[in-house]
Amino acid sequence: MRYDPIGRLLLTPVDRGAPERVRRLRLLGIGEHPEPAFDGFALHLAQLAGAPYAMVNFIAEERQFYAGLHTPAPETGRSRDRDHGYCPHVVVRRRALVLEDVRDFSRFAGNAIVEETALRFYLGVPLIDRTGIALGTVCVVDTRPRHWGRAFLDTVKSLATGLSEQIRLREPDSI
């Protein structure tokens, strides 16, 4: 991870797996354009959570792209800098991240996405493909603190695993 000596906040972690991930995303043909199936997945996840935002997010070297997006603000862009948000942390860690109230975590409270969207809650789960590469995330976001508990996290993990299986079918040797 990088450290900002002036702001004294831990920044987005160094992502040594990005070049391999980008090659894999290109092979699978995902992560550069919106996809109705991923939008449908995001809608289902948002409805299940009762949250205003849900995404299927793929992480490249310098940016992240929401190939699946559910948001109450239709003008919301689908691409962000890699340093905005929490999904890059999930991808590098290769583990779920639950922030019931981002303000409770100094490491995460200063992220630019908090001010841009009034984000307060984040739950992200990595999308890990059959080769073991974390391609991106499935995440739920809310503008108010939330507590769903372990059962909901397990549900999102299960949904992410199912989506990873659907993505595997895009492989040239699977078609």
Rank of each mutant, 00 (worst) to 15 (best):
I133V: 12
I133M: 10
I133Y: 07
A134C: 05
A134R: 03
A134D: 03
L135D: 04
L135W: 02
G136S: 07
G136L: 05
G136W: 09
T137F: 02
T137V: 00
T137Y: 05
T137A: 10
C139D: 09
C139H: 03
C139P: 02
D142R: 05
T143N: 08
T143P: 01
R144Y: 06
P145K: 10
P145M: 09
P145Y: 09
R146F: 07
H147N: 07
H147Y: 07
H147C: 03
H147L: 08
H147D: 08
W148L: 14
G149M: 07
A151Y: 02
A151C: 02
F152I: 01
F152E: 10
D154E: 15
T155G: 05
K157P: 01
S158Y: 10
S158I: 00
S158C: 10
A160I: 01
T161G: 14
T161Q: 15
T161F: 15
L163Y: 10
S164N: 02
Q166T: 12
R168T: 12
R168H: 14
L169Q: 09
L169C: 08
E171M: 01
E171N: 03
P172A: 04
D173K: 06
D173H: 12
D173S: 13
D173Y: 11
S174T: 08
S174I: 02
I175Y: 04
I175N: 03
